[in-house]
């Protein structure tokens, strides 16, 4: 079943995805040849350990991109949930309540943005840009300093891990932190939603053309608002995972992360024009970014090289997308 679905998108989606996977393997090989200790299971697993929060957020961003919109409030939502959960935990609010509250805030923020965009026809970029500033501003209002987290539950999630042993040698040993399993759940849920639910398919239809979708009798309003809701929900969840990861909340964390989330989706084959994209691609996209980061660390370069390289990669993939789109248009005219 999955196969039939994929074959039809061979044009745009898969070329991008194939390049991405090949690129990932090449980079991994490059690192393995160049640096000692690089080729190991833990290098691979650390891609997930270190980027789980980004993967979760990027999966959310993929929903919005598929619907044909854009959400650049992701990074500040992550920062906001990080700071406010640290703030609340510091004041003794129970961990589960904090998490619940943060997820709720995520959904409300996202749905509000979606509603503004849909009902009042405001441009997504303005609304989510304002959202970005609002959340960042609130971060600083809550606390200008970094707040450490000492809640036992958060600590368990942060430090608890499962050892993975695939062989005797050290290179075949690695570990997975508990919070990575949250990512797995989100991933599975996202794949299921996009492929096997009515809502997921409406999302693709919406990205294919809003007028068509509404004339086909699909509920455009609900779909669009839900897409932004999911995006912010994932960002909030990513924020919680991020505070597991760092055990602290700081308002200026993750500046410019929206570009990472966006580019991982694009690198993974999601079209910026909407209607095409998979979460699996997005996850591979984040893995590429993770490996760039790893190489930059091994090479002992300025960390800003990561951002610059990711931006360059994004440009490269956007150009590829454009070329494929133009080609498809031309060949279509010839066939018919």
């Amino acid at each position: 079943m999955e196969q039939t679905g994929k074959r039809k998108r061979v044009h745009i989606n898969n070329i991008s995805l194939v390049i991405t996977v090949v690129l990932f393997i090449l980079m991994f090989l490059f690192g393995s040849v160049k640096y000692n200790n690089f080729l190991s299971l833990s290098t691979f697993l650390n891609l997930f350990n270190d980027n789980a929060y980004l993967m979760i957020a990027a999966i959310g961003a993929t929903f919005v991109l598929i619907s044909g919109g854009i959400d650049i409030s992701i990074a500040s939502t992550i920062a906001f949930t990080g700071v406010s959960s640290a703030f609340l935990l510091e004041r003794g609010v129970p961990a589960f309540l904090v998490i619940l509250l943060m997820l709720l805030v995520g959904i409300i923020v996202g749905c509000t943005q979606g509603a503004l965009i849909h009902y009042f026809k405001l441009q997504p970029f303005i609304v989510t840009l304002a959202g970005q500033f609002l959340m960042r501003g609130l971060c600083v209002v809550i606390s200008e300093r970094s707040i450490p987290i000492s809640d036992p539950f958060f600590k368990t999630m942060a430090l608890g891990k499962v050892a993975v042993r695939l062989g005797e040698a050290k290179a075949w040993n690695g570990k997975i932190y508990y919070y990575v399993f949250i990512l797995l759940i989100v991933f599975a849920a996202a794949v299921y939603t996009l492929r096997y639910t009515k809502f997921g398919r409406c999302l693709y239809a919406l990205g294919g053309g809003e007028t068509s979708a509404s004339l086909m009798g699909l509920n455009v309003a609900r779909t669009k608002i839900a897409a932004y809701g999911i995006s912010s929900f994932c960002a909030a969840l990513g924020g919680i995972v991020f505070s597991f990861y760092t055990l602290a909340g700081f308002g200026l964390q993750n500046l410019g992360l929206e570009l990472d989330a966006l580019s991982s989706a694009v690198i993974g084959g999601t079209l910026l024009t909407g209607g095409v994209g998979t979460v699996a691609g997005t996850v591979v996209g984040v893995m590429i970014e993770g490996i760039i980061q790893t190489i930059v660390t091994y090479q002992n370069l300025n960390t800003w090289w990561t951002k610059v390289t990711i931006a360059a990669l994004l440009c490269f993939f956007i150009v590829i997308q454009r070329i494929i789109a133009i080609r498809a248009e031309k060949s279509k005219g010839k066939n018919e």
Binding site: I70, I72, F125, L129, G256, E258, L259, L262, L272, W304, W305, T306, K307, V308, I310, A311, A312, L314, C315, I318
Partner: peptide
């Protein structure tokens, strides 16, 4: 490319540069 994405590239990478 949509202007927001196009300029976001430089917004993030620019500070890196």
């Amino acid at each position: 490319i949509q202007p927001i994405v196009a300029t976001m590239i430089l917004m993030v990478a620019g500070r890196g540069i």
